[in-house]
Write a protein that binds this DNA or RNA. Structure first.
Lengths: 132, 132, 132, 132
DNA sequence: GTGGTCTAGACCACC
DNA sequence: GTGGTCTAGACCACG
């Protein structure tokens, strides 16, 4: 269905990590309008976190208009948030980026350094923190 | 000397943002062993945050062995396992990645989507550190 | 549960006194893995110090891997390299040392001098940790 | 003459460490009335600390009546602070305590644990922190 | 003037 | 209710 992952050491609030992952999956077209998110209880059980925390994340997604809860059925991705980018384009870009990462590793950069370069290039092109 | 930037909306604790930026700058070779970080008071004034918050970030860097405070003098980058990656290599990789970002923008991806693709490709190659 | 005590006159930072006492209790087997430390607020109330000071001590213990905070539950002793010294042995040694202290008092040494002798003998056997 | 040692990691203010060591040496009879302390500059050079810090420690010793500065000559232990405990008694007690430490080591206690037992027994006999 | 400690009190994340 | 973050501001140790 959709798998969440958590990084407890990142210092990022748990519920925000969940929200980000859904938002990102929507942006990349992995989650389509109408797709169902795992239930609060499923997520809570899988990640061994408090259901309230999951509920809070879903509430935030609703607030942003990205998802909608249907009482008694679950939470679903909203129609208004389509990706508008061609999946083939994504595939091409991902492929190219994977090659770049491969290059970087070949040049001796470890995962951390690769992330650092990505973050710094991202920062150049916009005023915001990307890969923190 | 060294410029910090903050993203208040990211939900990432301020002191962690500071820590990440120094860590990243060290990884990329922007900060070398012996370099002085701006003083606690300078950073606090520049970002209009509380000196304690900056101090906390610096303490964390010290804990990680990346920096060392010299009372009355300032805080300095430690001689750690240096970068060991050729600056020219970094330049080449950054250049290539910038071209990729340019491509992605040309294909219609906004900044958020670019970040999302980067994060997801990064996640493929290791189990950690997404765009959170 | 576990009782802290403070010596305001010692010049040792409050949070360090707390840290030392927990560390020492672990070494002596008084605190076992899984034991809960009193909550930040309890300690702060009992010693009439600021909760932040207690939190700082607990964070330091966490940093050393001796304790772990569970948000919303409390702070607990970690399963570390346990004491591995027989309680009976401790009892025997404590008993013998108490006799020595008694002797010293009988010989006219006050508490300060007793502490001074202990500290200097300790210093002989290792280059660190005196009565500072 | 008299050798100071510092433990930078202890968190105890430098000048207090110096004061304690002199106080302790007087208590144990190592420093006798009339004995000269090393000059501020000597100590500062030897420990590579700021002369002001040493001066502050000596000022504190003067304030406590333990030492007195003679302008242009140096700082000397005051007559009023004699030990009143027989050196032979000290020797005997030290010897016994060394045997106890030896025993403890033989029983498997490392230096830290030995210190911990000493500290806890000390604490029993008085309301103050000895070996912190 | 530097970093470090402590207090006081607000607010947040999580159980 | 728990711990965590941040602010504000005082005071100390050190150079």
């Amino acid at each position: 269905m959709f798998a969440f992952r958590l990084d407890a050491r990142s210092g990022v609030p748990t519920f925000l990590q969940l929200v980000s992952q859904v938002r990102q999956a929507i942006l990349l077209g992995y989650l389509q309008p109408g797709d169902q998110l795992p239930t609060v209880r499923q997520v809570a059980a899988e990640l061994t976190i408090n259901p309230n925390t999951v509920a809070k994340a879903y509430r935030e997604l609703e607030r942003e208009g990205l998802a909608a809860a249907r009482s008694g059925q679950g939470t679903f991705i909203q129609a208004t948030t389509a990706s508008s980018v061609d999946p083939a384009t994504y595939a091409r870009l991902r492929h190219a980026l994977r090659r770049w990462v491969h290059d970087a590793h070949a040049a001796g950069l470890d995962h951390e350094r690769v992330a650092a370069v990505m973050a710094s290039v991202l920062d150049e092109t916009a005023g915001r923190e990307g890969v923190a």
